[in-house]
Amino acid sequence: MIEELFYIEKSGYRDSFIHNLDARVKILGMFAIIIAMVAVPYSPMVFTVGTLFFGFIMALWALARLPWLVYIKRLVMVLPFGLFIILFQIFFTNRYYQVFHVIANLPFGIHIYAESVEFAFILFVKFVVCVSAIILLSSTTKLHDMLEGAGRMGLPPEFALTFGMMIRYLFVFGYIFRKINEALTTRCFDPFDSALSYRYRMKQIGYTVGTIFIRSYEQGERVYTSMLCRGYGKSSHIFVTRKPLRAPEWSFLGICIVFTVVIPVGTWLVSSRV
């Protein structure tokens, strides 16, 4: 995941309309889409709302002029756990439907239900839309901009400071991790090598974990001391300048909010009329 960190941050440094938008606008817009998508009840309505949201996110992705492969790669990386739950849905009944129709009988008394397949798709749509919103947000916004944006929106200064410190040292530990990994590889150590005894492999990984822990602790101590020298105290916080939103940013935010409200409400009205 740490390699991915460099990769994602790199895509955040590109230049496009979406990249240049203020972080606050993107955070609010994407969070609105996620919350709206999660708030839509488990019903076939999710398909319409989800497809429209997905189309909107993909349009923004195209506007950000990022390669489609980046999106697909990132999506594949976060799929496993969600996909595991989604795939197994088809074999079980759930409380969101009253009647279940068997569409396939498998050995050992396992059945596949039509309603459960539909429910699995509902979950899948919700999952993919929410993950896509996050992928768009993090691929078009630098980590530090996101932090500043959150600070401007009222994130408590204690959190802003700790997140700021964490983000700064993430990249330091990214390099440290890379070095340790290279050192292990040059010594022909592979944690997946079944020729080595399990205990030995675990011990090596354990010692590596211990080393990273001590290194990060000592780094933390040094940072703390150097911050003290520069006058750090209990009331210290990250300095975030005021930055009013520009007209295009206001309009983008407006479009996002209106879109996330109008689509679910409109779909609900149309479906209730039918």
Binding site: M1, I2, E158, L161, T162, F163, G164, M165, M166, I167, R168, Y169, L170, V172, F173, G174, I176, F177, P191, F192, S194, R201, M202, I205, T208, V209, I212, F213, R215, S216, Y217, Q219, G220, E221, V223, Y224, M227, Y232
Partner: peptide
């Protein structure tokens, strides 16, 4: 607090060590 924040970055790196 800064010490814990830096340690969090370390823990994040630790989480990337995979094993079979």
């Amino acid at each position: 607090v800064p010490l814990v924040a830096v340690l969090a970055a370390g823990i994040f790196a630790i989480q990337t060590l995979n094993m079979a």
